[in-house]
Amino acid sequence: MKSKKRLEKFTIGVIGFVIAIIFFFPIFWMFLTSFKTEVGAFSIPPEFLFKPVLTAYQAVFARGDVQKYFINTIISSFGSTLIALIVAIPASYSLAFLKPKGRNFTLLWIISTKMMPPVGVLIPIYIVYTNLGLIDNIWGLTAIYVMMNLPIMVWLLFDTFSNIPLEILEAAKIDGASTYKLITNVLLPISKSGIWSASLLSVILAWNEGFWCVNLTNVNAATLGVFISSFKAGEGLYWAKMSAISTLAVIPVIILGWIVQTQIVRGLTFGALKE
């Protein structure tokens, strides 16, 4: 009986690892390709064992504009997250503690904006941006990412704040703290972990975004995604280079994702899923 159970566990473990390897393999293959020469990247049969070289990485950085795409990606993802936080904190505070009239309706409305496919507002935003000179402007793109992440941010912070015992805030109030002090000195420190996971989710979503950036930017405000998508035209002439820049672009987020996997997914369900 016992050995039968152990065999069963072993079989499930093997299946679990086979699935994991199949799913991980494409990313791993890209990682390997980034250390090949352009000729090696094309070789048939594929090279699994080879002498790793850094020529692809050197070629990518020799272009001189890659730094710009990195900076644009960092500005738009971290900038939009910071702005969304500043706008969302008072709103979530109000929804969780001050209980304004029509609170449930407001919450529903905020979250329902996520039900609209982005393509529903693409054309007007493109036209308005053209008129305002915001096309290919990094702050124009950042503003879009704020719109994209604000509803999730409000919802997640509301969820976090709602679980904070009221006595703590009450006590600070009695001690005569202003609302501003109450939020910065009491509320934010105790909701640190919730704020962190909401912010990480926001950064990841903006970093990986692949719709607005290709439609609203091309040169000056291009993000890593826009730059990498330019490899689609070359019909795969530069696989090693493409792999090198892609590896650099995905590694930070993959590592973040590995660390905070469950919180990220919980965030994407808008807290609808409780553990």
């Binding site: 799913f23 991980f24 970093w207 995905v250 993959i254 973040l256």
Partner: peptide
């Protein structure tokens, strides 16, 4: 952890890859 990796890579990279 290995299994969930594709979800965190950007779709543009995934598509090209």
């Amino acid at each position: 952890t290995l299994f969930i990796t594709p979800f965190f890579a950007m779709p543009i990279v995934n598509g090209l890859l």
